[in-house]
Structure formats: structure tokens, C-alpha cells
Nucleic acid binder design. Structure first.
Lengths: 199, 199
DNA sequence: CCTACCGATCGGTAGG
DNA sequence: CCTACCGATCGGTAGG
């Protein structure tokens, strides 16, 4: 009889991701979590050391996924518009494949203790920097408009890919690839009709 | 001696907005809130009836602001691209002028009791509908691209205007008008350089 | 608006 | 992994 079950610790993290994302970190009690796994509150502490450890691990997990998806793109030689399209796809895929931990990441990171909080803040800056580099590259090579404000452009792109955690539904008709292609088409090509007045 | 101070109840709501947005609804205790106002925990209940009443009022306040800003636009005869630009401006202005309650709105509405929760969900649908109508109008009159997917387009626009609550800093160099103009320029005109290959 | 209190629940631990 | 428990804190109330 092969053991196909996940280790207990992973099960706990999965349940915690789901409950924290649905109810919020502080509104989820350790007894809620234990109940979800069919155990008693105190029994959790045979596998973990504290509630915050769970939050830290979930948030770290999520940021590692974004890192793995995006930073391999950094070195690749590719026109910036195409690279932006690929980055958006990978970013949205991470959100779509990890809806629970992504939601926890976006909503609950403020509740981390100072050290973990600072780490997440620093990490966010690296993601911002990634998109700003990408857009700067595009402006320099001429694939993106020369009059773009780098910071505002990266905010706009990040809005599109991050906000997906609020509306995307895995298992629906839209795959992450579809979302990314549509968003990239609209962002790169613009919403205005070509026949419209272009100043 | 003229009384320039706000009524106590409004002060409580202001403090609650700030604390709920900074720490979250469940992580803010009624004693935290009372302390912020220089009173004892129990004294709050001379002015309010429950903690949830505060959350409901903050969320309702925010949604009324969005309503007031957007729905007067509904009837106006205006090219859709221009109307979209104006809607984005008003939407971002509400976020920017109400950073605390907007943050509470986006993060804590899930913690409302079922009736209030359902009301917010319904309200969100009306905002979605507003943007979809606007975009549909633009496609029909030919100011917006004919191949736009209405739902995805409204998600993209809503991403841009809503996500602002995470990064906008009132009192900085960027006024809501600046943000809206830049976002609208990028969204309507596209990020790709006109000299780039257009399929 | 304060003091003093209510029952309930919290995160976490000891001992098995 | 359970039972039984710890001190702390929660939202809310009574009486003044």
C-alpha cells in the first residue's frame, strides 16, 4: 500500500492557506484549522511551532513562486514587448495556480512580525524593479513608447496581473494564458480603435 | 467658542477606518480603538452598538462615494473614450481621497455578516455593469476597438483604478488627475511604440 | 464617559 | 495526537 497522502505538515499548510484566504489570518483560530483537518487544537503543535510560522511559510512560498517564474526571464534576449507578454503570463499563472496563498500574500502580509514584514517589503521592491527594468529596456530598444513614465507603466502592468486574484476562477473557461494574452494585447495595442482620432 | 470638532461618532468612524485599514478588522480590538480616541473600551458603546456596525458603516460610506462619483456619468452624452477617462479619474479620486475606508472596503468586506455581505456583492456587480456598459458603448460607436472582450476589458480597467489603493500616497507629487490621465493614455493608446511592428 | 465585570474564546503548553 | 489546562484578551453590558 503506497502512501499517496501528503505529509501532515503540508496538509496543515494547505488548510491554513485556504482558511486564511477565506476568513483572514486573525479570524481563523487554530481550533478552526485543527477542525478542518479532523484533529484537536493542541495537536497542531506537534507539527508546527506557532500560528505565525504558518503565515510566514505561506507568504514565503508564494514569493518563491513569483521569483522562480519571473527571474529566469531576466537574462533572456527577447524584444521587450514579447518579454512583457511572457512575464504577464507567468505572473498570472502563479496567481491562478495558487489562488489561496496568493490571496493570503496580498491580504495578510501586513500582519507579519517586523523581520518577516521587512523581508516581504524588500521582496516586493525586487518585483517592481524587475518590471521597471523590462519597461526601460523596451523604451530604449524602441519597442515601447518613448514617452512612457517607467514607474506608472509598471504600476499599470502590476495592477492587471495582481488584481486577478480577486476575480480569476480556476477551472473556468479562461486559462491563465488566455487572460495574459488578452491583457497584453489590450495593454500593448491600446483600447482605442485605430480609426479613431489619433493626435 | 465655535465647536469645530467633529461629532464623536464621526471621530470613532475615522479612527476605526484608519485602524481597520492598518491592522485589519479582526486584529483591531475595541480597546485599541477606544485608546486611539482617549477613552475606555466600554465607553464606545455609548455611541455605537457593535463593532460590526462600524465595519458596515465604513464599507457603506465607501460604496456611496463610488456611486456618487460614477453614476452621474451614466447619462451624459460623451464619446466613450472620453467618458472612460473621466470615470477613471473619478474612481481614482475616490480611492485617493478615502485611502483608509477604500482599503477597508477592499480587504474587510468578506467579514461582513451575510446580509451586509450580499449587499456589497450586489453593489460590486453594479460597478462592473457600469464599466461594461461604458465599454460596450465605445465599441458600438467605434471609439473603442471592435475586437474587445467586454468583460476582460472591464477587468483591466478596474484593475488599474482599484489597485491604486495599494500604492497611491496622498500628499505626494501625483494628484489623482495625473494618475488617471497617465493610466488612460496608456490604456487607450497602448504601450507599444507606433514605429514597432503592427500586425 | 468610567469602573468593574460577564462568558467566551484566543494561542499555546504539559503530560501522557 | 488527545485531554485538560494556562493566562490573556476578546466584544459587550450594568450601574452609576
Amino acid at each position: 500500500m503506497t502512501d499517496t497522502a501528503k505529509p501532515r505538515r503540508e496538509q496543515i499548510l494547505d488548510s491554513a492557506s485556504r482558511l486564511f484566504s477565506e476568513r483572514g489570518y486573525h479570524a481563523t483560530s487554530m481550533r478552526d484549522l485543527a477542525g478542518d483537518l479532523g484533529m484537536q487544537g493542541g495537536s497542531l503543535y506537534a507539527h508546527i511551532s506557532s500560528k505565525e510560522e504558518l503565515l510566514i511559510e505561506i507568504v514565503n512560498q508564494a514569493s518563491r513562486q513569483f521569483d522562480a517564474a519571473l527571474f529566469t526571464l531576466r537574462g533572456e534576449a527577447m524584444p521587450a514587448d514579447q518579454k512583457l507578454r511572457e512575464a504577464m503570463y507567468r505572473h498570472i499563472r502563479v496567481v491562478a495556480d495558487n489562488m489561496d496563498s496568493a490571496t493570503v500574500f496580498f491580504h495578510e502580509w501586513k500582519h507579519l512580525s517586523p523581520e518577516a514584514y521587512a523581508r516581504v517589503t524588500g521582496w516586493r521592491d525586487t518585483i517592481d524593479a524587475f518590471y521597471r527594468e523590462l519597461i526601460t529596456q523596451g523604451v530604449q530598444e524602441g519597442t515601447l513608447r518613448a514617452d512612457l513614465d517607467i514607474k506608472m507603466t509598471s504600476y499599470l502592468v502590476l495592477s492587471a496581473v495582481n488584481w486577478a486574484y480577486t476575480w480569476y476562477r480556476p477551472g473556468g473557461t479562461l486559462a491563465p494564458r488566455d487572460v495574459a494574452e488578452q491583457f497584453a494585447d489590450m495593454l500593448l495595442g491600446g483600447l482605442r480603435a485605430p480609426t479613431g482620432a489619433q493626435p
